[in-house]
Each structure stands twice: as C-alpha cells, then as structure tokens.
Design a protein around this nucleic acid. Structure first.
Lengths: 321, 321
DNA sequence: AAATAAATTCGAAACGATACGACTGACGGA
DNA sequence: TCCGTCAGTCGTATCGTTTCGAATTTATTT
C-alpha cells in the first residue's frame, strides 16, 4: 500500500516520532536528517494529510465558496487569494455553488467535512443561515463582496456606494441629465449599494427618477435586454451606468447593435476591467474594482483570524478609469 | 469538540458500528433509523472525512490541476466537470499552477496528500514526470487538452489538427493566398497540432511559407504584438488565423488599432467563443471548442477509471462558427 | 412451537499521523 | 570524576471512522 511513516521508521531504524518530528520541522541530528531524507526519496513518501488532520484537527486548507466560477471577478480574486495563502502554507478548495442557495449549503457541508481551517465565501444571500454551521464550529469566516448581518465574520468589500455616486456625478458633470442605471436585484448587496450611490447623486442634482432604473439580472443577457429596453423606451436618455461586468458586456453589445456610439451618441460607464472593449470603445468609463487587492486582503484576514484575530470589516477603494 | 459518531452512539444507545452502517446506507431498523436521524439533527453531526478517508483510503475527491484559473477555457471546463462529478458523489479540489512546472509538482503532491481518488490535469509539459507519482500510486489520471507520452493515463483532446486544417482551407476557399498564423511555442501540444493543421492545408495549396508563422506566446499581449508585427512587416497579408482565445483578443485589439476591418480589409479566424467581439466583428470566423463536452467527458472518464476501466484516448470534434 | 434462515447489531481492531511524558547520551561546569 | 542540563529520541495512547467476525434479534418454515 502507500508508504507510511512506519516504513520510513523501518528503513531508517528510527522511531515514528522522530520521523514525525523531522517532518514537522523540529530539529533532528544531522546524520538522521540525511537518513530520513534519503528514505523519503527512496520510498516516495507523501504525508497522509488525512491521518494528520484527524489527529490535529487542522487541514492546512481553506475553503473558498463562490457563486460562479466562470467570471473574471471570481477567478482573479481566487488566483490572488491562492497565491497569498500558499505563501502561508495553506491550500484552497474551491466550490462553485452556481448562485444556488441549496448548493451553497451543500458545499459548506462538503467543505466542513473536509476539515477546512477557514472559509472564504461570497454568499448568495446576505443571510448567515448558510455559513452559520461554520461559525458554530468556531471556524473563521471571511465574507467578500457582501455585507451580512453577522458580527462573527470578517467582511471585505469595496466602497460600492461612494464609487457609484462618484461615477454618476462624473456623468452629471458632463452635462447629462437623463442617466439610466442598469443594476441587479435589490436583494443583492452590491446591486443595492451601487443603486443607492447612483440615487444619492441623482437626488442631489434633483434628477432622481426611478423609472430610469433597470434590472439587468447581473447577466450578459440581462444587461443586453435592459439596454435594448432603455433605447426603445427612453429615446432621450443621455447616459447609461451599468453596475457589473457581465451586464456591461451585454449592454455594449446592445448599444453596438443599435448603432449607438459611446462618447458620441451616448455616455457610458461600465463596471470592471472590460479589457477588449477598450480597443473598440475608448470613450467608455469604467469603475475599476481592486480585485487583486480584495483577494490578498481576504486571504490575509483569513490567516489573521486563524491565528486568533477578531473579525473585522474592511472597505477597499475602487477607482474610475 | 466536534460531534462524533460516538456521541451519536451515546445519544441513541446504539453501537458506533450501527451508526456507521446507517451513514453508509446500509439498512437499519426503522426505529433505529429515526433515533439516529434525530440525534444527528439534534447534535449537528457532520461526518469527519479525515477519519473516514484514513480508514478507507478514499476521499470522494478528485484533484483538478490547471495551468491558469483565469481563462474561460479552464473555468468552463471545470464548471462542467464539477457538475458531472458532483452527480456521482465526488467533489473537486482545484489547483492553479500558474503555468509553472515547479508549482505543478508541488500541487500534485498537495493533491495526493489530500488523498484524491483521481487526478484530472492539464499538464504544463507533455512529460509524465510530474504526474508519475500519481500513476505509481495507482491513482487514475485524466489528461485534458494535451497528449502525453504515457500509456497509463486517459487523454481528452479535440481534433486540433483537422479543425485547423479545415479552418485554413476555409480561408483559402475565400481566395486568400497569404495567410498568417499566430500560434504558440511548439513545445505546447495544442500549438503544435494547430500549426501542423495549418501547414497541411497550406502545403496542399502549395502556399506554405514558414515566415508567415508567428509565435504569440498564447497570451493577449503576445497576440497583440504578433499581429502588429504581421501588419508592419507583411503588408500584403490577406488573412490571419489565430489559434487560441487570449491571442485572438490581442490580435483583434491590434487590428482595431491599426484600423483594419475584419471581413473587409482582412480575413480573420480566431479561436474559442469570443463573445463580445461578435457584436463588433460579425465577419469574424471562429474555431469553437466543445468546452462543456470536454469537461463532461473528462469527468465521466475519470469515474469510469475509478471503477476500474482502462485508460483511453478520446478525441472530440471542434467546429467552425 | 421449535428449528432454521435472514437481517441487524455489536465490540474491538485497525488506518497513519501526532502528542506527551519519559528516557538517552553528550557536554560543560564544579 | 560526578552531576545537571538539554537537545534528541522513543513508546504508546489517541484522533473518528470503517471493517469484520461473532452475537443477537427477527422472520420464515416445518
């Protein structure tokens, strides 16, 4: 079967405890170190994390739960998170719950049964019911991109409201008065915050009118449909502000189809780095989230919590490109 | 501490073995079933996979190793794979090795120490040295998007050469004679195959000239640079064929910057579903890989191998949109 | 109702690593 | 030379499951 510590012990003539010590970085005599290392190489030993985890109740693994793996938003953050955590000796297990609450719960059970030392999660709902089990088990939880009503978890979010307000004000400064907003369902934290930022700006200008607000369902298709709708029913619209990556893409496609030139026929502000479109629509403005930073900070917060730190809320700053 | 089977045993007055049996789907008496289920709910029991894995040498987990998490190619495949595996009761652990051979090895050790029941991998090199450890341990390995020189693993690839040949022939049929190819380093399996498909078509037409072949390094920047280069140094080029997603994007950006209209000034065939560009460059042709199918098939092959099937090679068909 | 067959349940021994207290030997100081 | 110190090493119990043969209960047959 697999090579175990006992095999190493037999091979080297040492006790398991000594091998274990070596493996855990506790100093052993030079000549023993050499023997052990030779044996490891010779036998091809790989530590059995399951046995270790059983004994230590630690796995050296962080669970990452996201609603959708196939979005730049998630992957950029995850990549950076993995990097940071790896440096601290942690690996990650990623679960994609497909924006499905039931799967989210399933996944959390899965991760917990894998004995993760912590949970970084972008919850589908703002309700703590799903990750409550983790909290009960005293497993540190970091929530990203959402604010929840729980005091037991850390939050890492961006200044959604402020940046949306600023973006809207920038459009206003260009002289636009009829500005449409494409956002998501108000049950989604970011959608709500971003809408409120927009609302603040519009109200201050005395221009708020909620018929300018469209729900784009946070998807490419939704953004596309919402934009078509806007163009069809609000002929005098002067600008569109779209509040996430997918909808931005959909919206641009719709504008393009309708022959509306951004910067000329209409002002446009999108969300996130829509790389390719910059070539085609240089006049487009974009709210740029510090994705790498979110990943880094979330990871760092996680390790701090594992080491005993209290939960904290961190707000990072997005900027406008 | 955590709730264990023993706690359930105490709570119900049954032996651990009975609880274990219930948990594993072996029938127990109705009234015991009820008692056990109540106890589980009451105490909030979650099975400790580590203890179980230690005993059974199975983890119910498949390791997935990819060179780059932040690419549509990977994420689409992974998402589909996860779906399929989940249905069979497996979870996945994803590792991103950042196209780095050393990390690839590290990650494989990590995954093996996590006792994965199988490994699905998109190797950086075609050399079996990295995943050899897995094979030695009799762990099924499925390689996607690459052919390796190992007979012990399954391969899931697309018909790279044929489809590239077909794509090239299609361009030729439009009357183009000077067709540039942007591909990657010849050490990369897909780059090589795709280049050879192109070469076959060009040779048949008596038009092959390797000065038309550019290395775009498989990245957006590389594709961009290669295309700029082509436009600068091959003024009479009539068409460009780009062989992966990232380079396609880079190439389109470059063409756009240079004011070259696809379908008018130049013919263009890209690779993979470049969603957004379709709105801007409807004349663009694209080789479309069946990503979902790759994921599905890889996952299915994995479970078959776990159940004892022999390694096999599967070639899926891409088409041209 | 007794005897046999079938279905559950039980107890205790693993699985592979770590933790803990006890033990060894080498070294320096008195 | 003797003793205390301390870095290393050793045995062994233990983590929470599953496994397996034996023991017990329930169902079936005669």
């Amino acid at each position: 079967m697999a090579v175990t510590i006992k095999d190493l012990a037999k091979e080297t003539g040492l006790a398991n405890a000594t091998i274990s010590a070596y493996l855990n970085g506790i100093p052993v005599r030079e000549y023993n170190r050499v023997k052990i290392e030779e044996a490891i190489k010779k036998l091809g030993y790989i530590r059995n994390d399951y046995a270790r985890g059983l004994k230590t109740h630690r796995s050296g693994t962080i669970g990452v739960l996201i609603p959708e793996l196939s979005s730049v938003f998630s992957t950029t953050i995850i990549t950076e998170m993995e990097e940071t955590l790896r440096e601290k000796g942690y690996g990650i297990i990623v679960c994609d719950c497909r924006t499905d609450l039931k799967r989210e719960e399933e996944s959390i059970r899965f991760l917990l049964s894998k004995m993760v030392d912590g949970l970084i999660i972008m919850p589908v709902s703002a309700d703590k019911s799903t990750f409550g089990t983790a909290i009960d088990k005293k497993i540190p939880v970091v929530v990203i991109d959402r604010k929840t009503n729980s005091k037991d978890v850390s939050h890492v979010v961006i200044n959604n409201r402020e940046i949306s307000r600023a973006a809207t004000e920038r459009i206003l400064a260009k002289g636009c008065r009829k500005i449409a907003l494409v956002t998501g369902d108000m049950s989604v934290y970011t959608a709500k915050e971003r809408k409120e930022g927009y609302e603040e700006a519009m109200r201050s200008a005395g221009l708020y009118d909620d018929s300018f607000i469209m729900n784009g369902g946070l998807s490419v298709e939704g953004g596309y449909a919402a934009t078509k709708d806007i163009l069809a029913n609000m002929p005098d619209v002067q600008a569109i502000f779209v509040t996430n990556y997918e909808m931005t893409i959909g919206s641009i496609i719709a504008l393009n189809e309708e022959g509306k030139k951004i910067g000329k026929d209409i002002e446009f502000t999108g969300f996130d780095k829509v790389e390719i479109t910059r070539a085609f629509v240089p006049a487009m403005e974009t709210v740029n989230q510090p994705l790498e930073e979110i990943g880094r900070v979330a990871a760092a917060t996680m390790t701090e919590m594992i080491d005993g730190a209290e939960p904290k809320d961190i707000i990072l700053k997005a900027d406008i490109l």
